[in-house]
Every structure is written in structure tokens, then in C-alpha cells.
């Protein structure tokens, strides 16, 4: 299973690197314009690290991703995604992956981000993509949906959550300095979170 997890993170890295310009444009509108640059620098290093090492355990692989992002991103996304993945590394299963594991992974990521960023849902941050995604997984579990369908729903919820940040006023991070003027722009953090969730789902379901 480690190979599969490695493939997922390699693909996430490619997607983030491909979207460097897009994320930076979104961040230039309401922030300091470095989200795409920082994220692609971090994930380039993740790719390098993962391709030059073999991992026996998923937990070790994900921990490497976390520590690499912490060391190389250079902006708030480093500690935020770094702590999220550090938490994920503690709960990621080594064998069977099911909806309970997906929920646990999502919740541990949210806890990590909230520990660092102290944000709630609705503040125009990455949590606005991730929290609805995890909520959707919980609902799918209630409805006894197949894992594949549950993941598609999760991806949809993340996308809707990302788009819902457009009218929001930022109250956390650099965008909050703009006050009312932060409205009308999609949050770059929610966008990178959506891209990560989308890639994970597409890779698992392909």
C-alpha cells in the first residue's frame, strides 16, 4: 500500500506544481501573493524526497511529507499543511482503507490545521474546503454509501466549499487586513486544499 500512497503524493505534487501560477494569482488578489510559489517549492521537495527513498510504512512516508513541507514551504501553509499531515501520519492505516479511515484522516488533518491556525469554518481559509469534505464523508457513512461514491461526494463538497469562500470576508491570515475588500475572491488556501482532496479522490477511484 505504500506504493499507492507514494503515487498519490507524487500526483498531488504534480497538481500543485501545475497550479503554481493559479494559486499565486488568487493569493495576489487578497494576500501576499506567494501561496503558489511556496506550495510548489514545498511539493517539488516532497517529490524529490519520495522518489529517492523507499518507505516500509505509510506513516513514515506521510511524516516525511509533513516534515518536508514544514522545512521548505516558507509561508503559513508550511506549518498548516505540515501539522495536518503530521497528524494524518499518526492515523493512516497500513493495510485496509475504508470510510472510517477516511473520516479519521480528515478529522486529524482538521485538528492539525486548527491547532496552528486557530480558525473556524467560514473564515475564508483552507478549512472551508476541508471541513465540508469531511462532513460529507460522515453523511455518506450514515447513508451506507460505497467508498467510491462517498469519495466522489467528498470531492464535490470540497469544491463547493472552496467556491463558497468567494463571497466570504477573511478574518484570518493576511487577507483579513483587507477587511471588506477580501470579499469577491476565492481563497487560495481553500483552493490548494480542494486540489489536494480532488487528487486523492481521483487517484483512489481511478
Amino acid at each position: 500500500m505504500t506504493e499507492k500512497i507514494k503515487d498519490i503524493f507524487m500526483k498531488i505534487s504534480d497538481v500543485i506544481i501545475e497550479n503554481k501560477k493559479y494559486l499565486t494569482e488568487l493569493d495576489s488578489a487578497i494576500g501576499d501573493g506567494d501561496h503558489g510559489i511556496n506550495m510548489s517549492r514545498g511539493f517539488k521537495k516532497v517529490k524529490e524526497k519520495l522518489s529517492s527513498n523507499d518507505y516500509e510504512k505509510n506513516s513514515d512516508l506521510v511524516k516525511t511529507v509533513a516534515m518536508t513541507l514544514i522545512s521548505t514551504v516558507g509561508g503559513a501553509a508550511g506549518p498548516l499543511y505540515g501539522t495536518a499531515f503530521l497528524n494524518v501520519s499518526k492515523v493512516i492505516p497500513e493495510a485496509e482503507f475504508d470510510i472510517d479511515a477516511a473520516i479519521e484522516i480528515g478529522e486529524s488533518a482538521i485538528n492539525g490545521i486548527q491547532k496552528r491556525g486557530k480558525a473556524e469554518q467560514g473564515e475564508k481559509t483552507m478549512l472551508d474546503a476541508i471541513m465540508p469534505a469531511v462532513e460529507s464523508l460522515r453523511e455518506s457513512k450514515e447513508k451506507n454509501l460505497e467508498l467510491k461514491d462517498a469519495l466522489e461526494e467528498c470531492k464535490k463538497a470540497a469544491e463547493e466549499g472552496m467556491k463558497a469562500t468567494i463571497p466570504m470576508q477573511a478574518t484570518k491570515g493576511r487577507a483579513s487586513y483587507l477587511g471588506e475588500r477580501s470579499k469577491g475572491h476565492q481563497d487560495p488556501g481553500a483552493t490548494s486544499s480542494y486540489l489536494i482532496i480532488k487528487t486523492i479522490v481521483d487517484e483512489i477511484n481511478k
Partner: peptide, 8 residues
């Protein structure tokens, strides 16, 4: 040496 932070 760019603008940002280096936790290490």
C-alpha cells in the same frame, strides 16, 4: 533568503 519563515 526570501520573505517568509524557516521553522528549521
Amino acid at each position: 533568503g526570501e520573505i517568509g519563515t524557516d521553522p528549521d
